[in-house]
Design a protein around this nucleic acid. Sequence first.
DNA 1: TATTGTTATACTCTATAACTATA
DNA 2: TATAGTTATAGAGTATAACAATA
Lengths: 169, 169
Amino acid sequence: MTEPRIDPLRLQAYFALMEVSGLLRHGIEQQLREAGDLSTVQFQLLATLGDAPQGSSRMTDLADGVVYSRSGLTYQAGLLEQRGLVMRRPSPDDERSTVVTITEAGSALLEQVFPGHLEVLDRVLFAPLTEAQVASLADALGAARDHMRATPPRSAAPRRRRSAEPSAD
Amino acid sequence: MTEPRIDPLRLQAYFALMEVSGLLRHGIEQQLREAGDLSTVQFQLLATLGDAPQGSSRMTDLADGVVYSRSGLTYQAGLLEQRGLVMRRPSPDDERSTVVTITEAGSALLEQVFPGHLEVLDRVLFAPLTEAQVASLADALGAARDHMRATPPRSAAPRRRRSAEPSAD
DNA sequence: TATTGTTATACTCTATAACTATA
DNA sequence: TATAGTTATAGAGTATAACAATA
């Protein structure tokens, strides 16, 4: 029942992270909704595609970074496609894969939304921070992100079905 | 149409923040669900109460930090109360207010869940970070949080109805 | 009249499992 | 058989607006 190794600094960082990300997400959600009728997830998908080599990505790769489950991505991609912001078509290399590509309309919307997005970001998140703090933030969070990306989510793998369950037929 | 003031460092910090908080929330969600059948929000509510002066807080104050809308908090508080983890009763000072208090069962559950929670935290978030990085994180995020708390969410105030809309009856 | 909290309702989003098609 | 993606479905969570009660 002893709990000696609760590092106050970590707790502090953790709670601050959760509160900041929550409030930030909330503030951002409003701006994105008003400026482009986008949810945060949809914006992240568009932004990820906008940053990708040919504005394209496989569904699975997209799901890795932004969304949790595949069906969730299919849902969101469907919404974006309906609005003409992305295109989906089968990969030439592997007929099983679907390549998602941001359209011109998608890029345009991204550009339309971006300035206000940055403005909110500056006002809500970065305003009180020094350059050094911003740098520290980018450094530490970048390291954490790389680590998380590399870590296999040991329970309930998102993209790989455990082969331990034989079909038992 | 020029966008010269996109500070790459801030963008980097921002995207990392969103990805880290998203993945962290996801990982935490699983642990909390398994260890105590709690959602992240419910855990945050309990943790906030556990940290409060008498394990108590007004609904409105609770909503401020953790949840977004009042009805959302009422919903969550109802769930927690059903499970006997919190108690609600009218404030002695102000009959309009409701004071939420964490129960012994609530504290017990918190303690039950906490070790595993910290373990996940260390493994997923803090493992790759140096002490200096953790300190920087706590510092910068703490500053951001204080700023966000102090900032009136200028559009669609969460707790105050704009008086600009006359009942027009 | 303003504030606190609840309720009713509608909607968005997410996850699970079953399914199809290709490698 | 394993992988990529979709679909159907069910469930949780959130916000909005209307409401009741107290200051």
